[in-house]
Simulated scan of single mutants.
Amino acid sequence: MRHLWLVAWALLLSACSTAPLASVEADRQGKAFQARPQQAALYIYRESIFGAATAVSVELGRQKLGRLTADTWIRLDLDPAQYAVRCTTMENSDTAVVDLAAGQVRFLEVAMRVGWTWPRCAVVETDASEGRSAVVSGRRAVASEVATPPASPASPLLLIYRDDQSNERRIGLVVRYEAVLGRSRVVPFTIENMQQEKACSGVFTADGPRSGRFTLSCGFLEGSGTYQVAPGDRSDQFVARGQNPQGQPIVLVIGNPTGAPGRL
């Protein structure tokens, strides 16, 4: 009986609760199911008998994306990182965390459940087949543009390595980032000399909140390794240690971390 009452309530309110729809062309483009270069495509969709009566608010982190009703969806083109997607109704809110890698196409359903007075929402990941089917049969809703977070500020960097003569070399440089350290899973970076000339490039890839891996490519040096942020240090203060292809050590001292190494 309670379920029938909720259905009737949903039908009664269906005319006054809608989500703005995107253009036919935007809808068509969104159903291509291909990620942009170096990004991931995240689809968030609704399939629900209560959808027409209850517009569910959707957020990415703290940013409001818009609303979804029955058989609507939004697509987000995002940089590789970990994201929290949240749904909110008058009855509840629910959050799912998704870790996106470049080239991925992922699907999250905002599922509806029977609540005490209003339907409740839940964010759940679905497989590609189920997600594609829901998107193809639905309409694209208008979503707010996702703001690109500013990159971490440039930091001083001390590059320590051994050359072909096994002599230790120390060079003071500056590292600049293309994403946020400690927030984005993949952070490309460039290294400049004191004349602001590009000397190296590379990528930090987080394996955890305070640790990960790096790759480094310079005209005079190549290498890879791992990094660790010490307790008490900021995310832009750490030591990265690795080797070049010949097995010689490479150390990147970034910012002013505690426990910075002396000599190799």
Rank of each mutant, 00 (worst) to 15 (best):
V253Y: 10
P20N: 03
S166W: 13
H3G: 01
T226I: 04
S235W: 02
N167S: 03
R263T: 15
A230Q: 08
S166M: 14
T89H: 09
A22K: 07
R210C: 00
R170T: 12
D27P: 00
T190N: 00
I74L: 14
D127W: 11
T54C: 04
A22I: 11
A19Q: 05
L159C: 06
V253M: 08
C218I: 07
T258G: 13
N256G: 03
F204A: 02
V123H: 04
A102T: 07
S235A: 05
G66L: 12
T117P: 00
S23L: 03
G182I: 01
A151F: 04
R210H: 02
A206L: 06
R140S: 05
G51Q: 05
S23D: 09
Y161L: 08
S166C: 02
V136N: 06
P150R: 15
T226M: 01
V97P: 00
P20V: 09
E168T: 14
Y177W: 08
G61Y: 10
F220C: 04
S133Q: 15
L173T: 02
E168Y: 07
S217N: 15
S155P: 00
R263C: 05
T88K: 15
Y161T: 04
M194N: 09
G225Q: 02
L181Y: 01
G242R: 00
D236P: 02
A147K: 11
V24P: 00
D27F: 02
N167E: 07
P80F: 14
L42A: 04
L6G: 12
R75M: 15
E59S: 15
A52G: 14
A32M: 06
G219R: 08
T215D: 10
I74P: 03
Q29T: 10
P188I: 02
T95E: 10
D71P: 03
R210N: 01
P150H: 12
Q82W: 13
S155Q: 14
Q165I: 06
R113E: 15
S144I: 00
V105S: 03
G232Y: 12
R183L: 05
A206D: 04
I250E: 07
E125S: 14
L181P: 00
T148A: 12
H3A: 06
A147F: 07
S93D: 13
W116A: 08
C200W: 08
Q165S: 14
G66P: 09
Q38S: 11
S17N: 05
G212N: 04
L159M: 11
V56P: 01
V97A: 04
A230E: 10
I44G: 02
L158S: 05
K198P: 01
F220Q: 03
A151V: 07
S137F: 09
L252E: 10
Y45C: 00
L21A: 04
L157S: 03
V239I: 08
L68V: 09
K64I: 11
R185Y: 08
T72D: 09
F189K: 03
V7H: 07
A154P: 01
